[in-house]
C-alpha cells in the first residue's frame, strides 16, 4: 500500500477459454500457491504490473526516509536519535530489497530511478505531508507504519517469489517501527498538557492521510480484480482500511486521544467501526503533485541523485582501474 492505484492490463480477467496454454499453466501455478520465479514464463501484464507495484513500493520506502530524516538532528534525546536513525536506515534497506526484487523482472535500477525522478512512477501519497512537531514522528511510526504492515503482511504470500521474500524480510523489521512510534505517542500523550496537545495535533493531521494510504475503494476495479487473480494483491483497499481502523481506534483510546472523526462509532452488529472516508479529492490532488510537500520531496531525491553522481562515477572508475591492474599482472 505503499503502492496506490497500480494499473494492470485494464482489460479485466481472461476466462480460461480465452487464455493461451501458457497463460492457463501460469494461472494454475498461481492458484496452487506455487511461487513464480524470475526465469519462469509469465504474462507480460503480470511482469509490467509487478514492476510498477514493486517499484512504487521501493520508491515509497526511499522517499519515506525524508519526513523522518527531518527530525534526526532534532530528536529530544540521544536515545531517540539513535532509534530514529536505525529506523530510517531500515527504510533505506527496505527500499533496496524491493528495488532488487523489481530488477529480477528485467528493469534496471537506473531506469527505476529515472522514472521516479521524472514523475513517471509515483510513491505513496502519505510522504507528501510535512512532519511539523516531534509527535509527528510518533504518529508516522504508529499510523503510517501501522497501515503499511496491514498491507505488507498478506503480501508475504504474494505469487512472485522475490517480492514475497522481500516482504518477509520487511515485515520482520516493520513491527519495530510501529512500536517505536507508539512508544513516542505514549510518552507524549501521558506527558505534560503541551505534549498531549502535540500528540493530538499529530493524530489530527495524520489520521485521514493514513486512511488514504490504502487507496480509493477498488471493489469494482478491473485492475484490482486482475491483480488479485494473479495474487499480487491479496485484499481489497476497503478491507484493509477497515482492518486498520478497527485496530487503531482502541490504541488511540488507550492514549486518551480523540480520533478526528465525529461519525466514528462501533457497530455491534458488524463488529466493525463505522468511520468517515477521507476526502478523495485531496488524495487525487496529492497524487497529481499538488500535496504540501511534493516538490520538496522529489526535489530532495533528485538533488541527492545528482550530487552523488561523481561518487558513483569515481568508485566505478577506481574499481575498473584496479581490475585492469590485476588483469595486467
Amino acid at each position: 500500500m505503499y503502492a496506490q492505484m497500480v494499473k494492470s492490463t485494464g482489460k479485466g480477467i481472461k476466462s480460461r477459454e480465452e487464455m493461451t496454454d501458457e497463460e492457463r499453466q501460469f494461472q494454475d501455478r498461481v492458484d496452487a500457491d506455487e511461487k513464480i520465479e524470475p526465469k519462469d514464463w509469465m504474462p507480460e501484464g503480470y511482469r509490467k504490473t509487478l514492476i510498477r507495484q514493486i517499484g512504487q513500493h521501493a520508491h515509497s520506502e526511499i522517499v519515506g526516509q525524508l519526513p523522518e530524516g527531518n527530525w534526526i538532528t532534532r530528536a529530544p534525546t540521544l536515545e531517540r536519535k539513535a532509534i530514529l536513525l536505525a529506523k530510517v536506515q531500515d527504510e533505506a534497506g527496505h527500499g533496496l530489497y524491493l528495488y532488487c526484487a523489481a530488477e529480477t523482472l528485467g528493469v534496471s535500477r537506473d531506469e527505476l530511478m529515472e522514472k521516479l525522478h521524472s514523475g513517471d512512477m509515483k510513491y505513496s501519497s502519505i510522504f507528501n505531508y510535512p512532519t511539523l512537531n516531534w509527535a509527528d514522528i510518533g504518529a508516522v511510526g504508529w499510523l503510517v507504519d501501522g497501515a503499511a504492515i496491514m498491507n505488507q503482511v498478506p503480501l508475504q504470500r504474494t505469487s512472485y517469489g522475490p517480492y514475497s521474500r522481500a516482504m518477509i524480510r520487511i515485515c520482520k523489521e516493520e513491527s519495530f517501527h510501529q512500536r517505536q512510534g507508539y512508544d513516542i505517542m505514549m510518552k507524549m500523550a501521558f506527558g505534560t498538557e503541551d505534549q498531549k496537545k502535540m500528540a493530538q495535533d499529530a493524530l489530527n493531521r495524520f489520521w485521514y492521510p493514513s486512511l488514504m494510504m490504502f487507496g480509493p475503494s477498488d471493489k469494482d476495479s478491473v485492475h484490482s480484480a486482475q491483480s488479485m487473480a494473479w495474487k499480487i494483491k491479496i485484499n481489497t483497499n476497503d478491507e484493509l482500511r477497515q482492518k486498520f481502523v478497527d485496530q487503531t481506534v482502541p490504541q488511540a483510546e488507550y492514549l486518551g486521544l480523540t480520533v478526528p472523526d465525529e461519525n466514528l462509532k462501533w457497530n455491534e452488529e458488524t463488529g466493525h467501526y463505522e468511520f468517515t472516508e477521507p476526502d478523495w479529492s485531496e488524495f487525487f490532488e496529492v497524487i497529481k503533485g499538488n500535496g504540501p510537500c511534493n516538490k520538496e520531496r522529489l526535489g530532495a531525491r533528485v538533488k541527492a541523485w545528482e550530487d552523488g553522481a561523481w561518487v558513483r562515477d569515481g568508485l566505478m572508475a577506481h574499481a575498473e582501474k584496479k581490475a585492469a591492474k590485476v588483469a595486467a599482472e
Partner: peptide, 22 residues
Amino acid sequence: GSLHAPDAEMAIKNARDVYTRR
C-alpha cells in the same frame, strides 16, 4: 538477496549494512 556495488570490497561492506543489521 542482491545489491549494487562498484567492486567486491564495497559489495561486502554494503551487504553488511543492507543484510545484517540485526
